[in-house]
Design a binder for these strands. Structure first.
Lengths: 218, 218
DNA sequence: TTTAAATTTTAGACAAGACTAAAAATTTAT
DNA sequence: ATAAATTTTTAGTCTTGTCTAAAATTTAAA
């Protein structure tokens, strides 16, 4: 049996390891969990005792296969619930996360399985992130930064990287929301700025914007 | 903020008070919560401090209006989720309770509201129990014991009173399940036994069965 | 390479929720 | 009405997950 808190730590470690692709430091875990390093150390010991992580003092942790599967199971549930909230309950993109953080901990294999079927086996969540299958396998995601899109290509806005209030307000002002179709009209190589077409309106954006907006092709 | 454990105690007190319609004893609460009287006392003090119950040492507790609303909110969520599980995810009657016990604690007014709308504002859960509205008001339920049904009247099985394994197996053997249509063919007044028609088959049942099966008219 | 800075771990404490054992109050029975 | 039985509360302990302060280790710098 894995507790709610353990699940949250495993998820945090999973997300941190993905970027660094190495062992995750105690401090990094503490920061992500908004807690203190000493608390993280305590939990690391518990996870290690239960075989969810490999741990060497002062050397950080790595998820074991068992730990990885536990983390992925939580992520799978989180993303399925996000699809449910957006597709069936008319939630908007900025409202789903908090609720999905709660729903992801519900323990019932049948529930997860039936929810997946009810949603017709979605491959991606509303943010364009891949939903792992019941065995923990991911399909490759089509989510990239807007900066990666080529001239004349079209894409759909699926999320933001850093969600500062300022940036979200900027998006609102220019009618960019989750699901908005964006076509790249031109790209300036000297400052990496772009011109976009959104709802038949042209919009010039800076490098900063292009690197803070996630889109998916198709 | 009301904790998960507090919610479960409030729910227990609510259900106990409904039957007795008086103050609820510490022992009764402990039994329902499958815990010890001393633990119940501890929690009662917490609930009293927070204004959810009126408490006098050795005299039991009564829910305040605040406590009642908190309990009813949990019951509302529980029953809405049960409808969801049965209607949308093809759960059967004996599978929903355990999962709904988890889902009932998810905190999001918008979620509850939207779920209610998605299910088209159901008035009853799959067991025939009334679903309170957002203000905590109940509509009268049509759920009664099979023993209350008159000769030649039809009804639908919506639940059992005491769910012993023996009784559930008895129901299985005679093809009585959630949703089964039952017509009362005759009633014997001397022993309160009945003859039923189920799927064009007649079945004689004892007083004990008639008093342990919940049905709803229509 | 030895000191300074940063990171990590340990030790001890705390709150929530539960438990056991024993004391206090209430109820029941004689 | 008083003794016996039951119920309820108190006191003290335990576990989980958190914290602070201090000690140990590793990393960076001079």
């Amino acid at each position: 049996m894995v507790t709610l808190s353990e699940e949250n730590y495993l998820k945090a470690i999973y997300h941190l390891a993905k970027q660094e692709n190495a062992s995750v430091s105690t401090n990094a875990i503490a920061q992500k969990m908004r807690t203190k390093a000493s608390s993280a150390t305590d939990m690391i010991k518990k996870l290690s005792d239960k075989g969810h992580v490999e741990y060497q003092k002062y050397k950080g942790v790595k998820l074991t296969e068992k730990g990885r599967l536990a983390a992925v199971s939580v992520i799978r549930k989180h993303r399925l619930w996000e699809v449910f909230l957006v597709k069936k309950l008319n939630f908007s993109w900025d409202e789903v996360h908090e609720v999905a953080e709660q729903l992801e901990h519900i323990k019932s294999d049948k529930l997860t399985q039936q929810l997946d079927a009810f949603l017709e086996y979605p491959k991606e969540d509303p943010h364009g992130d891949s939903i792992p299958d019941a065995d923990g396998n991911f399909y490759p995601t089509k989510k990239v930064l807007l900066a990666q899109i080529n001239k004349n290509q079209s894409c759909i806005c699926v999320g933001v990287k850093d969600s500062t209030t300022d940036f979200l307000q900027y998006l609102d002002k220019h009618n960019i929301a989750l699901g908005t179709k964006i076509k790249v009209i031109s790209k300036e190589s000297f400052d990496e700025s772009m011109t976009l077409k959104i709802n038949n309106t042209e919009l010039a954006i800076s490098k900063e914007v292009a690197h803070n907006l996630f889109v998916k092709i198709n």
